[in-house]
Amino acid sequence: MPSPSGNTNEVITFVEEFLTNLGVQTKKNRKGGLIATLPGKDSSKHRMLTAHVDTLGAMVKEIKANGRLRIDLIGGFKYNSIEGEYCQIETSNGNKYTGTILLHQTSVHVYKDAEKVERNQENMEVRIDEKVHNEDDVRKLGIEVGDFISFDPRVVLTESGFIKSRHLDDKASVGILLQLIKQIKQENISLPYTTHFLISNNEEIGYGGNSNISPETVEYLAVDMGAIGDGQATDEYTVSICVKDASGPYHFGLRKKLTSLAKDNNILYKLDIYPYYGSDASAAIRSGHDIVHGLIGPGIDSSHAFERTHQDSIDYTAKLLYHYVQSELVN
């Protein structure tokens, strides 16, 4: 379900209907995010968990004379990671057209040095799957500057348990939270504290989780991807517990509590530092909220490109959250 940052109403509505059908109280904030609340035994102290449903994407920057589109990126990623990707252009009146993101100098039969050309805004373009020859033809379709472009996720579930897809950051975590809420309702679990679940819709551009935090909130846990790469401990088979990212260290007491819960419940985990990363929890801290903040999530390979994780990582993340929401607050 396409949901680049700035155009998330469809997927937020889907999540809202899912939760409403479970009998969960929800409300939308003015930014378009969704907050679900489950009452707890203690209503004087609250918890908040968040995962973001917005994804990377693009906007139409320019309609070129050749009938193709120059794009502007939404979120932090590189043009090379979307070269050759199928995409969808959604106009302001709701019409949708498909296309492919290509280097202008793609054809090796025409451009001798195609492999040397820099992948940047100047050289990358969208080839629209319509009979268009020039700028006027494109505008007759209703396509204009500012129209949103989403990328084909190409979801594949393998027999060996891998999930391959774009946008596992952070739709994997949104799915985990929705199933956690469903499990709490179905098992009639009595939570120790009133617990809010924020389905954020602006995390990829930095400010999804920085508001709508009740003054009673003590702990704020972001559920987002764990970054995999050279020098990283995170893998695709455990839950990743972040100790520090580009914003600085996460709360030491909450981190110790999460690791303790993992050990006590046979949950495989890895502690890790994500050097070029920020979360909704760090956005909340930067905005001045007096909260205990943490970050966990499934390990995701090739972040902000064609991502992959394993069902084991999803399961361990879900299990840790299940025990976390029933635990006592950090002293």
Rank of each mutant, 00 (worst) to 15 (best):
S165F: 09
T8W: 03
H196Q: 15
L329F: 11
A305T: 15
Y277T: 05
H304L: 14
S247M: 15
K256Q: 09
M1L: 12
N331C: 00
A262I: 05
S173T: 04
M48I: 15
V132K: 09
T13Y: 02
N66P: 10
T234I: 12
E328R: 01
Y193C: 04
S43V: 12
M48E: 07
C87F: 10
E118T: 05
N201P: 09
Y97D: 15
I71C: 10
Y79M: 04
P153H: 04
K96M: 10
A36V: 06
K64L: 07
L321R: 13
D72M: 12
E10G: 01
E118W: 08
A222C: 12
F197V: 15
S247I: 14
V330M: 01
Q232F: 06
I228N: 03
V108G: 00
V126E: 13
K171R: 15
E130H: 08
G75A: 06
D312Q: 04
I149M: 06
G33N: 09
Q179N: 10
P249D: 11
Y269G: 11
N123W: 01
T259D: 09
Y237H: 14
M59Q: 02
R166C: 13
N66M: 03
Q232S: 09
L19I: 03
L141H: 01
K257F: 03
P4N: 06
V53A: 15
L329G: 03
G297K: 01
G208M: 07
K112Q: 13
L191G: 13
V292G: 07
R47Q: 03
I12K: 05
I89T: 10
L177D: 07
L22H: 09
H310V: 05
L168V: 11
V53M: 15
L168P: 04
Y220Q: 01
